[in-house]
Design a protein around this nucleic acid. Structure first.
Lengths: 343, 343
DNA sequence: ATTTAGCACTCAAAACATGAGAGTGCTAAC
DNA sequence: GTTAGCACTCTCATGTTTTGAGTGCTAAAT
């Protein structure tokens, strides 16, 4: 339904607008040597493109600006599989000495992503519900306090300090840790409270005394409250975008960024592969004039997190898409290598 | 050198401006019943106060605004020891079940602080150089990978994953961990690299073979790169302040917030007690028109961190100072209770 | 039957003008 | 010493004009 020439013009307009952020007019277009037509001709074509909904005007006598439909078409059909070279090997570089810390890798990846694109990046840490218990340890720090450490099969380490309940001797504690390790080893994190309730409780009754009051306490100790973590990169980048010249716009954006649970939801329901949500395609009010790109990464079998990038709808989709593609592949690759799933 | 009446007027002007953010004029002041003088009288006094440098005009015929000198005087002499009631017991509330996670406490404290004040809070995590090694553990995750865990006497847990160097058997690893625990127990973190170099190296030579190439690797594994962590609260709060109505102002602020090392420096050199830096008293360009309040907290013997609050010079010093006072005391108290220093 | 040149028209943004309002400084009276 | 009064100043909001980029349409050119 669109002629070749219209597609060409659409492409050039979008490319131009993505770069300049200014409405593009017929005169400027006719000067480009990719389009050997006069301004008037281009005007006609633009009028058609507007009628079909791919372009918009900001006011009656302004140049044209891509509509969301225009961007959508651009993303779906007008960008070829172009590979963005920079930024490859980011993660490899981080870990080439064989030593790594998960948090640091993810944080650096987020920063790199935002630096390379000048947009704001968000990485959702991996779901850990399915990770299983590898080992539990309790270490006394003093007479009154101790630290409990839990290591999962994926190499995650959770720890929590606590004051020792009265009347708990060190041998009690040792017994308790033995019971916990015995019963919880290999159990996925989300089942911990349940197992403690059903199995650990009775064993505690049997082999230890006076500890049943502590049961509730132990359950609390090993219950994860917030399962996923967010890593941000370049929160300030978005301020460089001319569409953020309005203080209220900035306010609303940053206020969203502080509501982490909403962000988690926003990123979570991303399925496999890369997903581009342009403007109103987003559910969340505050980013209905932005574009959100999400890509998932995987760790071993099934657990996963999401990499996301937020920027104006006028986003450098070409660059961004290929970059996200390669980073998510790299992350999946790197993680999979280390976190083997044998327990 | 200032008359009582001038002090009164100064105080009222500052209080008023702190609340309204608008230059305050003589007419409005004469209407308050704390000041039973006519506008003209007040005008004269204000002229004097301006001459002595406590007040400023934004332009020739505007109301007066406190100068930095004015704020300084206000903070030093004009606010009594007023106790801010809300927000007491924040930290107690967080830990009343005896279970706590350091990071979470600090983060929550930062958020509470910013919520109660509507400014941006920053908490500098404790210096850990002086904490000593309590225990080191290495846990194999698979044939190729393992996780190393280090617990300090203060209950901090550091962990790092790594791929096992080739030719390292599990018994080698066990020996290594034994050596490390033997030599490093009780050693402060900052001395770890040195001790590994001098003592561990020779022992490794003696009892294990083929591992000397891994020495460097072990040193890297146990070397802390970034010793302090920052916790932010209410980064978006500052946007609500009318002095942040300018996009460039916002940009510069957020760009500073991303340069964490600079922030660490800014907060670090705070000595005991509470310190107020008003406007140009700050060294850092980006906050020369803001006020920075810092207070230190302590953990057991000597290690410490800093609590900070950033807001416009037009800050509610009364409220903020008493709040910072009580929060830093609470943190010191709470931390000290748990992190006893016996190793 | 396209394409193009030309021209009238539109609108946003910048530049300029005007007036009201809040506030000051000064003088003279209280 | 305090206050009323008044001329003066500057900002801010509002209205007006100008400029320039861009369009849509028509008629001529290819």
């Amino acid at each position: 339904m669109l002629t070749d020439r219209q597609l060409m013009i659409l492409q050039v307009i979008i490319d131009d607008f993505i770069e300049s952020a200014k409405p593009v007019g017929s005169r400027a277009l006719s000067k480009k040597d990719t389009l050997p037509y006069s301004a008037a001709t281009i005007r006609n074509e633009m009028a058609d493109l507007e009628e079909s909904g791919f372009l918009e005007k900001t006011h009656t006598s302004s140049g044209r600006v891509p509509s969301e439909k225009g961007y959508r078409y651009y993303v779906d059909h007008l960008i070829g599989p172009e590979i963005y070279q920079h930024g490859l090997g980011i993660i490899e570089r981080l870990t080439n000495n064989g030593i790594y810390e998960f948090e640091q890798i993810v944080q650096t990846a987020a920063e790199a992503l935002s630096k390379l694109t000048n947009y704001t990046s968000i990485i959702l840490g991996p779901e850990m519900f399915e990770a299983t218990v590898k080992q539990i340890q309790v270490l006394a720090l003093s007479d009154q306090s101790a630290v409990a450490i839990l290591v999962t099969n994926t190499g995650h380490v959770e720890h929590r300090s606590f004051t020792l309940p009265k009347g708990v001797s060190s041998s009690d504690l040792e017994k308790l840790v033995n019971i916990l390790n015995d019963r919880l080893h290999g159990i996925p994190l989300y089942r911990i409270p349940e197992v403690i309730q059903n199995e650990v409780a009775s064993l505690m009754m049997k082999y230890m005394n006076g500890l049943d009051s502590s049961l509730n306490w132990i359950r609390t100790l090993f219950t994860q409250e917030q399962a996923v973590k967010l890593y941000f990169g370049g929160k300030a980048n978005i301020l460089m975008q001319p569409e953020f010249n309005d203080v209220d716009r900035i306010r609303s954006f940053y206020s969203l960024m502080e509501r982490e649970d909403e962000i988690v939801n926003l990123l979570k329901n991303s399925n496999q592969g890369i997903k581009v949500s342009i403007g109103h395609e987003n559910e969340v009010e505050e980013i209905k004039d932005l574009s959100l790109i999400t890509a998932s990464y995987h760790i071993g079998g099934g657990q996963m997190g999401t990499i996301a990038l937020i920027g104006p709808t006028r986003m450098e989709y070409k660059k961004v898409l290929s970059l996200m593609e390669s980073i998510s592949r790299e992350m999946t690759g790197a993680m999979g290598k280390w976190y083997s799933d044998k327990s």
